[in-house]
Design a binder for these strands. Structure first.
Lengths: 222, 222, 222, 222
DNA sequence: GATGAATGAGCCTTCATTCAT
DNA sequence: AATGAATGAAGGCTCATTCAT
């Protein structure tokens, strides 16, 4: 919110911009380590500015989280583009998902943000940036028939949500355990003609797509 | 801890037991709605007792959460037993998982508890109660060759973690959306001979089992 | 207070008396170690009775402290009597004071009680029991002219107050340091003809005695 | 601690300094009356600031007590310096001790602080400020042979501890009664060649000094 | 704009005391 | 009489947010 206005109005004064960067840098590190619960005071101290400055730049915690998240999305877009270079469409998809999750693995704040913002406006706008690339990854896989029919980009979008808690819960035990759960999910995305079907299957693809699209155009606010 | 003693020593006095139930009832509702962050004061007010009473019965938040969780585990054990009555081994497994998740769907507190207690002692003891039954479900499925080789009970244990955030994130959009993600995971558990394999697969079954078992015998303390 | 009534009315029932003793025994130990700040719950637990029982027997903390103090006074009277057996009047006095303080040295609760009850009714009645014996010690010393003229029993009564804080403050450094301060005080009690005098001396003996006596007949209540 | 930083870094902002003074003023009064047990809430109300402000300035009770105590020490140093102006070495000593105690007489908090901080770091640093001046008072008295051989500054340091409880205990009876006990102690400090000796004297001077010095260089932490 | 002090609500916890069982 | 559960005031502390400097 506050962020948006700042970007619209005019470029920030030089020192203000420098402070903004300091805050972002400090916040990135702190949030990755300690999650979204860090206090404004901690942030301010780490950034070596006063609390008031944090508030001026990021009127609420969300606007800060969003700014950080935007940067993460940049990287994920980058990963997705890189994956498009891979010839094997399934391998491309797997590479994209795996790389994205590795990004998320060490970043506690990011996982929390994802969990509490599935339907937020920020998430919607970020999805808008990601969807074209992911759609292409998905489309290629469908053409090659290496993806279970009916799977769409939104299904991929759930994966970070699903794997995050496994990362957190198992880190102490074995930091890579999440890869096993991911493998199961990826297997679940594969086509498998002779597979048994649940008698009462969940949402079918068309219905699912409609629900997701409508929700993201006019996002539900909590 | 405090709870344990109460259960070991002798039945509570009648009035005490009544208050204990009041607290549990209020807590169940509050936690389901608002998550584990509810304060002792809120609990006391909702249960219509004084704070001190809450503290007497549940000296720390954990002991309360654990009491509630025990009840949930009771139900899940029940669900698992009921599933064993189903002839079709795959259907039994699916039914168990689905019913368990339905239990969890409306309960924010339960989901949070699961996420933050993967390696806790409580979770370990609860797992000890659940594992025998689940093991049987899994064994039957393996015998019938309807479960991907290498899948074990611990893999099933990750499912609540994985589906929880999808439930939360999508509730506002469409409360049943998680069933679709679950379907993907369940498909991932199916055997599929001709399936492609990831070039760099995650933990293999044997290694995985060893890690999980060792961690749960002497659980890592946070 | 409550104590008094209990003693007046009738002998306690046997189990009640047994509980009373348990409480006193536990309290003696706990208070000696931890001072007067121990909670009723601690006391009850240590005595292996319920809090309510502590309250029934000793309606307020003071009545318990007083009961314990009575016992201490018994011992001090005993010490004083024993000191009267010593021929050298000065040595008798010194022995009495030193032994009393040794009693007090390991008893944090006793020191605190003394400090907060100088003018209490209990203290007054205890003093009444002690005074005759101490008076005799003092009188003998005066006759032998080994005590500075004007010193009276009440002056001796201040010594435990004075040495207590030295005991507490220096225990960690050297548990016997208080003996040095005591020595100074004892030296101050000796006659010393050629001694300089303070230009503005404090209360003179007669006045002092009068003040003390009047205060102790009808003790000021805080 | 919190205090220290404030004093080191830079002068406080004007409004902050004003609040700090308010707090100190209120605290001085409250502590003098009610002892060190006053709560942060009481302090805040008396100072007409919010609790948070008290905490910001004095993160723990100790830092507040220390700030107050520093001021008291300032005054005592002043008194000691003034005493050095007095020609008669004994009279100088007596004046110093008496004036210091008068400062302490009406201040319950100060007495408690002294009693519970004999070996604290604060006390050690304060002693460091006082010792030079007191040493001079003591040295002059020794040269003039009006002080019992072996008495040192540390012995004088015990006097406030000793007289404090007498002040408290007797205030209601007669607020000046402590002067009589002080007189005894002062007499104990006088030289007196023909005086009897205790058969088993306490710590001798050399040993005493060593104990005290070592303890105050590296103070024992409670 | 930046600063950081002040605010005060709100959480956690303990404990003296009462009173139903 | 004994028990021990319940009460609730009170103290300790933190932190998001505002606003004077």
């Amino acid at each position: 919110m506050g962020e948006v206005r700042a970007q619209m109005c005019r470029p920030l004064r030089k020192d203000a911009e420098r402070n903004r960067q300091r805050i972002l840098t400090a916040a990135r590190e702190l949030l990755a380590e300690q999650g979204c619960g860090v206090s404004h005071d901690q942030l301010a101290e780490a950034a070596d500015v006063a609390v008031g400055t944090v508030y001026r730049r990021f009127p609420d915690k969300d606007s800060l989280l969003e700014a950080l998240f935007e940067e993460d999305v940049d990287r994920i877009v980058h990963i997705a583009r890189a994956a498009l270079e891979i010839d094997d469409p399934w391998k491309a998809l797997v590479t994209f998902v795996t790389r994205s999750l590795e990004l998320q693995a060490g970043n506690r704040g990011l996982k929390e943000f994802l969990m509490y913002n599935v339907t937020s406006g920020t998430m919607t706008s970020c999805r808008a940036r990601l969807l074209p690339v992911i759609d292409e990854l998905v489309a290629r896989a469908h053409v090659a028939e290496v993806l279970r029919p009916g799977i769409c980009s939104y299904d991929l979008g759930m994966i970070p949500l699903m794997v995050g808690p496994v990362m957190d819960g198992c880190r102490e035990v074995q930091p890579d355990l999440w890869r096993r759960s991911l493998e199961i999910v990826l297997d679940g995305l594969r086509p498998c003609p002779e597979r048994y079907r649940l008698s009462a299957p969940g949402l079918q693809a068309e219905e699912f797509l409609e629900v997701m699209r409508s929700s993201h155009t006019s996002p539900t606010r909590r």
